[in-house]
């Protein structure tokens, strides 16, 4: 008989409780990641055992919403990985230019920094007016923040460097207005972004799109769940559509490797075969 660690049993029961009560399914997330986030919350609340959080999560919605925020990663940047955005400009924009209307799905957009980056890039390439960006996340608080388009100015210097390195054609400061410690993104960037709540684990196809961006989301999922989400992406992309993953993500462990050709191997940009 193999004895599981007690804490593993507690974690699995807690995730089951969250799923049954609230419908958020973390059961196929990376275990090491989930454990670290739960242990942090446990220390903060002064509990001794993970199972104490189980009764709390079932009976206290405020605690449950805190835990959901813990388990949802909203770390992001404008023009994160400039080399990726440069490749997007050079290799994907020419494909998008051939379409009369463009639909883009930004899956797991968190607080929206990368969706705004995409809007900037499309404006500079003269494509934004005929584009709709569906920016989705399961974390409603993050989505609300994304919709506001107000960001702390602490990171702006870094973002400006990213923007320049990514092949930006203008000055980054022309895309926002400074207001005390914050910057407010230009209204014109928001007009074609549709912010929507969508859960990659439990929700299904909602549109047929030309381009999907889902970067640094799948690293949190186990192999089976990665495969399931890749199926969702494959069903949502038109033939010839483009899929962009994070720089450390790939199609290697999925059933869909043969469905795509590599447009940029290093930047993980794939084109769906006809």
């Amino acid at each position: 008989m193999i004895h599981k660690d007690t804490s593993d049993i507690e974690i699995s029961l807690l995730l089951e409780a969250i799923f049954q009560k609230y419908g958020y399914d973390f059961r196929q997330y990376s275990q090491a990641h989930i454990r670290r986030r739960l242990m942090n919350r446990m220390k903060m609340t002064g509990f001794e055992y993970i199972s104490q959080m189980q009764s709390e999560v079932l009976n206290d919605e405020l605690f449950a919403s805190k835990l959901l925020q813990d388990l949802s990663i909203t770390v992001t940047e404008m023009f994160r990985d400039p080399a990726f955005y440069k490749s997007l400009r050079e290799k994907v924009i020419p494909i998008l230019k051939t379409y009369p209307f463009i639909k883009i799905w930004h899956a797991g957009c968190a607080t929206g920094e990368e969706a705004y980056s995409m809007a900037i890039l499309l404006q500079e390439e003269g494509l934004y007016d005929r584009t709709t960006i569906y920016a989705t996340d399961f974390n409603q608080l993050a989505l609300n923040q994304a919709k506001e388009g107000i960001f702390s100015n602490k990171m702006i210097k870094e973002y400006s460097v990213n923007y320049q390195l990514s092949g930006g054609k203008d000055s980054f400061s022309s895309y926002y207005t400074s207001n005390y410690d914050n910057v407010i993104m230009n209204q014109s960037l928001k007009k074609n972004i549709v912010w929507a709540n969508h859960n990659l684990v439990t929700d299904s196809v909602f549109a047929e799109v030309n381009l999907i961006l889902c970067r640094n989301v799948l690293i949190y999922f186990d192999k089976d769940l990665q495969n399931k989400v890749q199926e969702l992406f494959n069903n949502s992309l038109i033939n010839g559509g483009v899929l962009c993953l994070g720089s450390k993500e790939s199609l290697c462990y999925t059933d869909f490797q043969e469905e795509y050709i590599e447009l940029d191997k290093y930047q993980r940009i794939y084109k769906k075969r006809y």
């Binding site: 593993d8 990376s30 275990q31 090491a32 990641h33 670290r36 990663i73 770390v75 992001t76 640094n216 690293i219 949190y220 450390k248």
Partner: peptide
């Protein structure tokens, strides 16, 4: 990070 099945996980946490 290292999982209990002795495989790697990467995260972009803070």
């Amino acid at each position: 990070m290292i999982e209990k099945d002795k495989t790697f996980s990467l995260t972009i946490d803070e």
